[in-house]
Simulated assay, not measured.
Amino acid sequence: MTATHRLLLATRNRHKLTELRRILTGVGSVELVGLADVPEYPEAPETGLTFAENALLKAREGLRHTGLPTIADDSGLVVDAFGNAPGVFSARWAGRHGDDEANLQLLLAQLADVPDANRQASFVCAAALALPGGREHLVDGRQPGVLTRGPRGGGGFGYDPIFVADGETRTNAELDPAEKDAISHRGQAFRAMGKLIARVLIDGS
Rank of each mutant, 00 (worst) to 15 (best):
R152H: 15
R191H: 09
T148R: 14
H137E: 12
L17W: 10
E61P: 00
L106K: 15
W93Q: 02
S29T: 10
T169A: 08
L111P: 01
R135T: 14
P115V: 12
V139K: 04
E43T: 05
G48N: 12
H97Y: 15
V200A: 01
G28N: 03
D80E: 15
T11Q: 09
Q110L: 15
H65T: 00
V146T: 15
A59H: 01
L24Y: 03
A192W: 02
G133Q: 07
A126N: 06
D166L: 03
R92I: 13
V164I: 14
A55P: 05
T11M: 06
L57K: 02
R12W: 07
E53F: 11
D80N: 14
F82H: 12
L8E: 06
R12V: 03
A189P: 01
I71L: 15
A112W: 05
D80R: 15
G98K: 14
E136K: 10
Y41R: 12
L111G: 05
G83V: 13
R60P: 00
L104M: 14
G145L: 13
F123Y: 14
L111D: 08
A121P: 09
A173W: 06
A189Y: 03
L129D: 04
E43L: 09
P115T: 09
G67C: 07
K180G: 11
G153P: 02
L35F: 13
A36F: 08
G134S: 08
G34L: 05
P86A: 14
V27W: 07
L104N: 02
A91N: 11
V114E: 06
H185P: 10
D140V: 01
P86V: 13
Y159Q: 11
G67P: 03
T18H: 11
T11A: 06
S90Q: 08
L17A: 02
G154M: 02
